[in-house]
Structure formats: C-alpha cells, structure tokens
Design a protein around this nucleic acid. Sequence first.
DNA 1: CTGAAAGCGCTTACAG
DNA 2: CTGAAAGCGCTTACAG
Lengths: 381, 381
Amino acid sequence: MVSQKRVTARSSRVKALPIRSPGAERGEGRVQHGDRTSGRRYTACMSTGASLLGRRASIIDVAERAGVSRQTVTRAINDMPGISAATKQRVLDAARELQYRPSRFGRGLVSRGTPTLGLVVVDLTNGFWAELASAVLDEATERGWTVLIAETSHDARSAVATLLDHVDALFGLVDVPETELDELVGPTPIVLLDPKPDLRRRAWVRLDFESAMADAASHLVSKARRRIVMLDWSRSQPRSERATSFVHAVEGLGLDPLVLRHTATSEPSIDLGRLAAEEALVQWPDLDAFVCFNDPIAVGALKACQAVGRSVPADVSIIGVDGSAVGLVVTPELTTLSFDFRELARTAFSTLLASVEGSLADGGPAAHRPVRPQLVVRGSS
Amino acid sequence: MVSQKRVTARSSRVKALPIRSPGAERGEGRVQHGDRTSGRRYTACMSTGASLLGRRASIIDVAERAGVSRQTVTRAINDMPGISAATKQRVLDAARELQYRPSRFGRGLVSRGTPTLGLVVVDLTNGFWAELASAVLDEATERGWTVLIAETSHDARSAVATLLDHVDALFGLVDVPETELDELVGPTPIVLLDPKPDLRRRAWVRLDFESAMADAASHLVSKARRRIVMLDWSRSQPRSERATSFVHAVEGLGLDPLVLRHTATSEPSIDLGRLAAEEALVQWPDLDAFVCFNDPIAVGALKACQAVGRSVPADVSIIGVDGSAVGLVVTPELTTLSFDFRELARTAFSTLLASVEGSLADGGPAAHRPVRPQLVVRGSS
DNA sequence: CTGAAAGCGCTTACAG
DNA sequence: CTGAAAGCGCTTACAG
C-alpha cells in the first residue's frame, strides 16, 4: 500500500516518494518542519485559510505527529482496547493539535454507516409537512436510520438531486412527470406519498379518504347541512383524490356535490383558503358547510366566514384535512380528518423495505396498505 | 491492487485468489454461473433477501458483467465523454440488471462530497423550529450545503450522536452541560443558538432582545398599559434572556416588572401558555398586558383571556416572540417580536465559517453579530 | 475509445 | 501493546 510506504519513508530513510498528482493542489501550504521531510506533512498552522471544505488532517497525519501507526490512532480515537494509556494520550493530543476529525467517507466505506433516508417535503412551515417530518424522524431514529430533509418549495429537482448524493432511499412528494422521475431518481429506492396515478408504478403510500369523507358527510347531514362545498386544491390534476372521495360521500347521501376547483398556482395556504371561500360564498350564497383540501385552507375559510359575519358553526360548518396543530389554535377549533402521522411514517418505512425486497424479486412495488384519516369533531362543525 | 487482480483473474486464467476475509460474510449467496468462477460474482438473484443495509453491487460487479474495466463503468454512469455508445449501453444495462447504485462513501472519498450541516432542533411541530429549519435549508442550498436535521425532543444526546456520523458541522440548540457538550460533539465545529452563559466558549449566535423589548414596552405604555406581566419559560436557568431584557425595558419606563416564572418541565407550548396565563390572572388580577416567552405561549394566553371573558386587546394586550405563522392564525392576530429567520440562518453560517477559521488561528470563537427581533404590531395589542 | 495504476481515509483481521 | 497488509468503492490522471 502506498499510503503505508509514506509512514515507512518517514521512519527509516527519505527516499523518492511516489508521484502523487492530487498532491499538487495541496502544494501551497506544505510546510517543512524540523527534520521531517515527508511530502504529506500537515500541521495546524498550514491549515489557516482552509475551510470546512478544504483538506483536513487525516489519520496518517495524526499517526506521523504522534509517531505511531494508523491502527494505533484508530484504537485511540475509537476507544478500543489494546493501547497503553500513555500512547493513547499522545495520539489524542496529536489529534487535537491537528484538529483531526475522522472522515465520514473513509469510515463509511468500511462500516457501511447507518442507513439514511431522504425525506422530500414541500414546505416545513406547513403543519402537515412539519408533523410528517417529525414523525418520520421519530420512526427513523427507532429503526436506526438517519433522516435528511429537503424542501421542494423552491426547486424540487435540485433539492432531490442534492439529497440523492447522501441517502440510501427516498420518501415524500416529488411532483414531476413520470419520465423525469426516472431520470432524476435513477436506481435509488423511493416511496412516493400519495402520487398521481401516472407515478404509481413506483412504490407509494396510499392515502384513502373514502371512509373518512363518508363519516364527514354523515356528520354534516346530522347537523342539518345540505349545501356542502368542497374547497379543493391540486397543482396538476383536474381534481384531488380527496375531492373524489368527497363527491362519492355526498352523492351517497343523495346530495349535490359542490366542488370549487381553485386554479391558483400557489401552495394550499391560509390565504388561498380565504380567497377560495370568498369565491364560494359568492357562487353558492346558500352554502352551509365547507369541506377543505387541508387545514390551512379550512382556517382560511373560517377567517372568510368571520369576515363576512357568517357564524361558525351556527351558519356554516367547516371541516379540514390534516389534523395538524393549526386546527387547535383557531376559535372555534377545527373539525378535521386527522392523520396518524406516526402510522404514516411506519407505513412509509415498511413499504420501502418491502419494495426493495419486492423489486429484487419481480421488479414491481410491494402491495400498498392505505393510510386512512379519522374524523375528529371539534367546534367548527 | 487486489480488486484489479480479480478482473484480471476472470479475464485470463483462474488462479488462487488472495484471501479475503470480509468475503466470508458474503459466502452465502455466492453463485457459480456459467464458466465464470470469480469469487466476487454478484448477480441480481443472489441479492434476494438483501436489505438496503446489505451488500450491494459495486462498480466491479458491473464491470465484470459488462466485460469492461471500472473506468469504463465510471464513464457510462457519470455521462462522461470518451466512451462508445454501444459500450455505454452495455454498461448501463448491466448496472440496471444488478441494481447498481454508486456508493456515496466511495464517491465521497474521492470527491469529498458536498459539505453537510447538521441542524439540531427541539421540535419541528413548533413553528419557531419549523421556520428556522426552512430558512436554514434555503440558506444552505444557496451555499451548496446539504442539511441533516435531528429533533432533540426525545433524546438530545442520541440525536446529536447520530447526526455526528454524517455531518461536517452542527448548528442549533444542544441543551446539555458544558462538559458533556465537549464529550458529545468532540472536534466537530458547532454553532450554538443562543446558549446559556456556560456554553459560550463555543461559537454561538446571540439573540438580542434589548431593543425589541424596549419597543414593546413603549408600545404597551402608549396603549395605557401599566401592569405588564411577562410569561417566562426556561428549562435550566432562573430567568430567560428575553425576560431579563423585559425587566430592563419595563424598569426603564418606571414601571414594576412582573415576571411569572413557570417551573414546568414541558416545552413552551400553547397549553403551557394557557396554564401560565391563568396563574398570572389569579396572581395579578389587575394585569393589563402579557409579554410572552414565545408565540405559542402568547396564543395560550390569548385563549386563557378569552376563556375568562377578558377582551383582547380591549382589556388585555398580548405580545409574543417569534413571528411564526401561528400568530397570523389567531383572532385577533398576534403582536410579536419577529425574527428574520433567513438572517438568523445567514448569521449561523457566517459564524460557522468564521469559527472554523478563527479557531484555527487562536482557538477561540469568532466575534458575534447578534440577531435582533423586530416589534410587529398586530391586533392583539 | 479503453484500461492499468494510484490514491482518497478509514478499519479489520492477523502477526508479532 | 503495536504495526504491516489488505480491503472497502470510487475517480482522476495517464498511457496506449
């Protein structure tokens, strides 16, 4: 091993070192120190100006400075047995002086490291994503995984691309066309969160709103609501999955399903919900309930109602989807179709593991256990 | 190079392969296939049962299957020039068949990878941390860094320990004693967010509430408030930094500073704020304003006031700290001392880079530019 | 267009 | 208690 030769050269005689082309870029900074003449000399002072990105001291530098072999450095750094206290101290001193930090790459190459999941969220300031991220972090920690998070609100493609250099698998919402997804993600295993139909050749977690929407509709009818409006949202589809379930549920009760499809390009936020609700109140003045794409939209609808003097829940009932914390902040508190985020995270993980096994066997994704939200009735309905 | 020998052995004659102890653990799964007899044979079928954690196909496996050298595989995989279309296709086919994914460790060892920041947050479902995380992700992306997030709400020590295997530096709140921090973090550069005084030997970002609290106090006095109560929170200190600034500000206006130090062990949440406010309303029945540790506590105070029929802002003014989204959801909207989270993220990064340079020079952290919140007046005051 | 060599930084046996 | 050798998986020159 060439790297070993260096140590030998130092401790015996100085001889012609092998040509090391990468060394050229570090030539600046090289320091001759005492009678040591190894071309690989690295001292703290030479690193002035080195950023986190630049060359750092390696285990060999520490070994040289402490006058021991690399294995001995490993023993000292990793608290392994079979090293004298004096030697250990000498190595640790040398390590500190050189600001030695083990390379995660060198280490990972040997130990393979802990598996890392890349979580692709749209926007952490949206409660749904924050709670999902929190749950995934918890679940991952329990399983010995690490989680890396990327936000796609600015640039989905570059966010995912960056993530891919660091992770073993992906989970989340990647809103790109099918063909682009293949190109973008390549061979990395991915579990998509509730994707559009054309992306369902990949492994995915299905959110199933059918039963919860049926519960919501029955609940509203029991409150004598008849003119129920869905404030939907979707970036690229004519209608969201949850709106479809809403239509089924309302029609099942013999009512007319009213759906406002807001064609905004912005995220499904409180502001957007307010606008959408104002629009709906004009379009259907006799409406008596809102079912909303998510909780932020529902909060916006609540604000819109309050602004025009329609009392909630006396005049208008409002139901959201998420179960995120924002629903507990408003007055009245928000009735919602609430997800168990921890269950969602668990399902994502088991789908991931199954899909890796499954795809090895037959190239197809594993069977999908759907995640179903639950109706939680609070003050707004 | 031994790994090279393998390829040679395969393409010429089968000779005694060097003893490879790690190979033992892969012996299960070894497959003899046609006339190929390399001990390193790896085919898709042998990997059934292999998890994400197990052995994967390496570049050598792909090279063997495609009948080319490793460099040629590199060229095909990385879209490099100097490779014929036919060869490239053959390599890509082999890679797909073996489900080849480049090892991030092997790659990082050569390219050093993009730098990675570990962000230590308490709880992403708290708006402050979610917005900070979002801002740090944005800032990091612009600088070409990747961000890994850990939540400390369950177990700060293990969260940080896991993170350390993956990152080049840390930023965030690590609420452990000084001595433990050294042991936990080791030589990894870290920037602490507004730490307790005993941790300030490390690099840190200072949050300075003096001017914003002075503005808040003046504002309240201009609204004829005289009995202003601070709902404070702190896990391990007698009084938070912001409460100290509050006392300075109120005393500066010749008023009596009233501070409720809630000795709860829970996080500073809406529920806690509600409890604290109820307590304060008993202790000081004539109070006419709350200044709160953060926005969730302020929202709790708002709920408490509404519950006992004290009108906000007519009877009681409420001011929070954060500027997170929750303040825009409540009615009336929350007056708050609002942070520019993007500025906070920027400051963290520049402190990090300065501290790395600085500590190389003299072992001490860089100078601290404080981050100051701004008073944003909304409906609650 | 393709391949043999050297090297990235670390750890795991093994031999003394 | 300590060190020489082999190897992890990849890329970057360099030589043909």
